[in-house]
Design a protein around this nucleic acid. Structure first.
Lengths: 201, 201
DNA sequence: CGAGCCACTGGAACCTGTTGCACTTCAGCG
DNA sequence: CGCTGAAGTGCAACAGGTTCCAGTGGCTCG
């Protein structure tokens, strides 16, 4: 609910909506093949059948485009996860399980993951709103995974923030070949223990 | 000790050493003014009195250059911190205090910080060795701060890894204006509690 | 001293993100 | 129906990272 669809800032027509989708699809396609550097604006424009200028009207920069692509992918992931919630009991284990699932999804499309995550962390202030949307989506996924009865406490929100930080940074170290899959798993499990800390407190 | 000076991979002559320093100095200078985008290779070359080709011989890309700049700055920070170790008692508090000092140093040169951190997280596989050096330096700083009697346990090393992740990612959110200084402080303090978890365990 | 080698220089050239512009097309409105 | 302004097109141009190359200068080794 928080940041689902376009907030009606612009009531896109059908044709425009279709264009937007074609662009995002082309972006993901190219990213899947060759990662960040393979997503070239002229290529995206051509393979989505749109003029370069139009592409820039929809996404003011390559980073905007890739961050939007990430929003898109995250939304799908979120839905998938909703259908099959984690099976663990403890909130910390549930979150770890969920993140490991997401991680496995990324392992299936490492180039796409690389493109999106690189864009996300390279984004400067001009992309803040979009990056923030991604962040809220991620937070929503984690909170969902925790399966809390009520609304989260401030301490829990802090823990979630830190988990997100770790998640992004661990992904980067994996994508750049500086950490193994096993290492990422350990890191995720390590941070998730922070959640336990917020319970009896 | 771990990753201090150049590992004699190339025994640079004096003139070369001097050139290298001039380049790094110019890089930091330009970064301090306008951040990542202000560090332009042609500018760096000119203001360090070196041909563009030579600059590229020393640092094969802009990202390499900025990561090397970060190594340089981190080394200075490490020495500064050695002279004035944290005053807190608890390891977790000591680490938090140390990171907050580092954070304050970055607040003094936000553009420089932005340039270095952006480069660090944008780095691809070709920069892995250099990024790894930065990572080891950071680890060393944190372990120093903990003030352990013996060598760290695996659990402690995991905690340190997660702290590093959080540190980098929190910096990025701050640099891109998505988190306040206060928020970063909270995040750092939150992760540092992981260290306590490794003690009585 | 001369030959060979390697780092350094200056500058052109290339690639890709980004911008600007003149022109066409489309949707809504009188 | 025709008008009008926004949206889309095609293309040229610019910017900055990166590469290439033909020289040049200084060094060592014979």
């Amino acid at each position: 609910m928080t940041a689902a669809s376009k907030p009606a800032s612009l009531p896109l027509t059908e044709r425009q909506e279709a264009r937007r989708r074609r662009i995002l699809h082309a972006s993901a396609q190219l990213a899947s093949r060759g990662g960040f550097e393979a997503v070239q604006m002229r290529e995206v424009a051509e393979s989505s059948g749109v003029a370069l200028g139009t592409l820039y009207r929809y996404f003011p920069s390559k980073v905007h485009l890739l961050v939007a692509t990430m929003q898109d992918q995250l939304q799908r992931l979120h839905e998938t996860l909703r259908k099959r919630p984690p099976t663990e009991e403890e909130p910390s284990a549930r979150v770890a399980q969920t993140l490991m699932r997401a991680f496995r999804a990324m392992q299936r499309e490492p180039h796409l993951a690389e493109a999106m995550v690189r864009a996300l962390t390279f984004a400067d202030r001009s992309v803040s709103p979009e990056v923030d949307t991604v962040s809220r989506l991620t937070t929503a996924i984690i909170l969902d995974a925790m399966g809390l009865p009520g609304s989260p406490t401030p301490a829990q929100l802090s823990a979630v923030r830190v988990i997100e930080h770790t998640w992004h940074s661990a992904l980067i170290t994996w994508l750049s070949g500086r950490a193994s899959i096993a290492q990422v798993k350990i890191d995720i499990e390590t941070v998730c223990r922070l959640i336990d800390l917020t319970n009896p407190n």
